[in-house]
Structures are given as structure tokens and as C-alpha cells.
Design a protein around this nucleic acid. Structure first.
Lengths: 158, 158
DNA sequence: ACACAATACTTGACAAAGGCAAGTATTATG
DNA sequence: CATAATACTTGCCTTTGTCAAGTATTGTGT
């Protein structure tokens, strides 16, 4: 039985899930704050980076879909898209079947920037786990996937 | 071998830790956004709530210590403390040995509010795991403690 | 076909949140 | 004792985000 499991067990006996989760949330709020503020050392805000990421992942996605996935205010979303279009990063293709809808896509420049942001994000995350050896990294990857899976189970966040 | 482990294994084969972690970060950014915005339905902002929490945890903590732990801008921190003092939630006790330092503490009202925020946070977190059965909850608690432990290992965030 | 509701997005006005740099008061150091 | 360092404050500013009203388009019931 590895030490971490023993530690885990002893801890678990004293705490309830809610306290554990809240503790984790506080911890991770700071982790994300640090990570996100360093991505921000690029010229794009966290929200912009997230939007660019989503469009890169799913070309043709609508502003509405992103807004719902990322929980962004509708008006703010609209402005962000307008700003990114103006900067030549995004383009809007109006649907012919429904003129209210715009399919979003990255321009060539946008794809370049998405790649940059990806690289920077990778760097940030790498520095987060730089102190871990191979075995611990594998462990961590497994753990967080399981966490996500459990939390997604009923909350239907894709 | 439980299904989740199989799923985990299959997933792991295809992804590297960095991608997994980044995916988790995107996921958890939204989770925390939702949780925090609901706490925010109380009259206090996330940052205020975090400050109140820290003072409640450790009476006599300084603004500087909180600022460093939560990674808040110094000026912003100062204003937040001033605001909370004005609202009768915090009090500042100037140290006699070093007049630059103020030991922060909650007032009676402050403790009341801390309790309210705690209750609301509990509710929020509970709704996050409401779909899980007892066994899954125990699992989750164990997982997140291990995640935190691994991430804290070299980053010296207390 | 036509009023009415719903959807997708936009815009204006505003407030909250946060960052940066200079400033004050106090204490530590060579 | 001059200088640096620490703890906190303040002014100024930008970014970020919210809310409500508005436009254009499409769906729905009669």
C-alpha cells in the first residue's frame, strides 16, 4: 500500500466530501488564476483565448453555442466576436437557411494565434507539473480524468 | 476491473498529461465560474468571500499574507480590506511591535456573514455532486485530495 | 396568411474588477 | 545615520462583465 493511499485514507476519515471539494475549489481557483494570467501575457484575455480555442476545436460553431458552453453573457459574447472579427482573427459566415445564425471560423491569422496560445498554455501547464516524475504524471492524468468524469456524470457539461 | 478504470485506461493511451490537464482546466474554469457566480448571489464578490474565508480560518492574518496566498494585487487588496472594514465585517489591529502591520479579524457581524457564505458554498458544492452515490462520493473525495497533493508537491502553495 | 412568440444576435449605458505606479509611514541594515 | 526594504495606501486608468432594450429573422397556432 503506497504512502499516498495511506495519507489519503487518514485524511478522508476526518473530512466530508463537501469540505474536501471546497478546499479543492479554493486551491484550484488560485491555480487557474495563475495559469490564466500567464496565458494573458499574450495579447489575448482569458475569455478571448477560450473563444478562439472553441472555434478552433469546432469550426462553424455559433456564438450562442460558445456562450452557453463557456457561460458568457450574451452581450459580452457579441462584443468579443465583433472585436475578434475586427482584428482579423475570426470570420462570420451567415447561414443561408437562417439569417440569424453565423457560423464562426478562424482566419489563417486566427489559426496562427490559436497555435500560439496553445503553445503558451502547454508551457504553463508543463511548469505546473515540472516537479513530477513519469509515474506521478501518469497518476495525475488518471486522477483528473476520473474527477472530470464523476463531475460530468450528472451535470451534463460536455 | 470497474468500467471507469477501463475508460480511464483507454483514454490515457491516447492523451498526454498536458492535454489532459488543459482539458481539465478548461472544464474546471467553467465549473468554478458557475459555483462562484452563485456564491456571488450573496452580496459579496468572489474575492471578498475569499478574503473573509481566510480571515475566518486564521484570525490575525495580515493583508500581505492573504494577498500572497490568493494572488491578489496589493492595491486592490488594500481597497477590499478598507471596504470590508467600512461595512463592519473586518477589523484591523495595528501591531505594537511593528506599526506597519495590521492583524485582521472578523467582527461578530463578519463571523455571521462568513457562516452565511460557508452555508451557501456548501449548497453550491452539494449540488455539484448531488447525482453521485455514496461510493462515488468517497471516490471523488479521494481523487481530488490526491490531485491536490500531487500539484502542491513542488509548487509550494499552501 | 397573419398576429405573436421565440430565437440569434446587437447595442447603449453602466458598474464591477483589477492593474500599475507613485506615495506614506515604519522598520531593518550596512 | 543614510539607505533600503517592508506594509500598506491612493490616484488613475483599463478591462471585464452585466442588464436591459432593440433589430432582424424564423417558428407557431389559428
Amino acid at each position: 500500500m503506497p504512502l499516498s493511499s495511506i495519507v489519503f485514507y487518514l485524511c478522508f476519515m476526518k473530512k466530508e466530501l463537501v469540505n474536501t471539494l471546497r478546499d479543492f475549489n479554493r486551491f484550484y481557483t488560485t491555480v487557474l488564476g495563475v495559469v490564466n494570467n500567464h496565458i494573458l501575457e499574450s495579447d489575448y484575455s482569458l475569455t478571448e483565448a477560450r473563444i478562439i480555442y472553441e472555434v478552433n476545436e469546432q469550426e462553424g460553431i455559433t456564438a450562442r453555442a460558445i456562450k452557453e458552453k463557456l457561460q458568457i453573457d450574451e452581450g459580452y459574447m457579441s462584443r468579443m466576436v465583433a472585436k475578434l472579427v475586427k482584428q482579423g482573427i475570426l470570420k462570420k459566415n451567415q447561414s443561408k437557411e437562417d439569417k440569424r445564425i453565423f457560423a464562426l471560423a478562424l482566419t489563417a491569422k486566427g489559426r496562427q494565434i490559436a497555435a500560439d496560445i496553445n503553445r503558451q498554455s502547454d508551457e504553463q501547464v508543463k511548469s505546473l507539473v515540472k516537479h513530477l516524475d513519469t509515474k506521478e504524471r501518469e497518476q495525475l492524468a488518471g486522477l483528473i480524468m476520473q474527477v472530470k468524469q464523476l463531475l460530468e456524470k450528472g451535470n451534463a457539461e460536455k
